[in-house]
Amino acid sequence: MEKILYLAHTQQDGTLPKVALETLSAAIQITKDLSGSTMMVGLIGQNIQPAADAIAASGASKILGVSGADFAQSRYGSDVKAAEAIANAAGATLIIAPATSRFSRALPGVAFRLKAVIDTHISGIQTTGGTLQIQRWYYRQRMIATLSRTARPWMLLVDSGVFPVWQGAKGTAKVEAVSVALSEKEQRTRVTGVEAPSADAQTIRPDAALLFVAGAGWTKKQPDGQTHSKEAETLILGLLHKAKASLGSSKSLVDQGAEGEAVLSFISHLNQVGQTGATPRHPKGLATCCHGEEPHVVGWRFINERRAVNLDANCGWAQGKADVLYVADAFQVMKKVNELLDKS
């Protein structure tokens, strides 16, 4: 029997982020699975009423909230204080929250203050024989652990793409305000803005259906003995635009910039998947001109359907890891793909 607190924050527009709605599904499921448990909701943001109304049908026994201008933006000092206050007010034994950048920063500090334990990057939750177990990856997505804890409170930060988005009717929710006063020390930081990537910058966009992974082969010498970086850029940008794909890159391609080699102008370390890069979740992934072993390949561990275009039939990036490997020249294939996408 647990006292569950589902904790979320609003976005700039007052709504809850998608991952928060996914995490709500998880919280509701756990409340159901652990019989006798109750769920409360805690919300943080400038104006939380619309968000509370949006999840009014979630079955929460109580909705607690910290709101006001001080809590509009993501700031460690104020976020920690707000979450701590809600958690104390709720007296929760389990705290479930989405792994947004804001909460990923703040909640570990809250856990410390509450003398709670915390697990992050949770990619699965289950109850076995009345015991709550979670799944998370270790060593950069190279091994998966199933674990549980007896200590309480236990705080769980759930990754995006793991649970279905909660869907329920809007309603009118009663929010119990929790008042939080910030000290001067907690206001030393001001958020001055958000810098969006420039319009032509290509980044990993979590909402894209397709992740296109470019490997170092794009900038290597081609059969005519020359490199064709410009052509590669055109082909890749063409595909990204036409297929509305997100762009990932292998580490070796990202690293080439520092070696004075011809590189693709729009690739930066933000595009890297695997190793020190991201492990994004997309329904589909298409890898081109990539080679690499396990640490690189983990970059597309969470891609559901995977295909690859490569000249080597035994490529470690593809064998046993992709569903289909096309052994062909990626320049020629992508040119044709772009032509066909244009037509359709």
Binding site: H291, E294, N314
Partner: peptide, 25 residues
């Protein structure tokens, strides 16, 4: 006849068992 464990392609040997890296610069 590759068995994917001991008999693997030269490319895979470089990636799986060779573990080669060259620092930049």
């Amino acid at each position: 006849q590759y068995d994917g464990k001991l008999l693997i392609s030269h490319q895979d040997a470089l990636l799986l068992g060779g573990k080669v890296q060259a620092a930049e610069g």
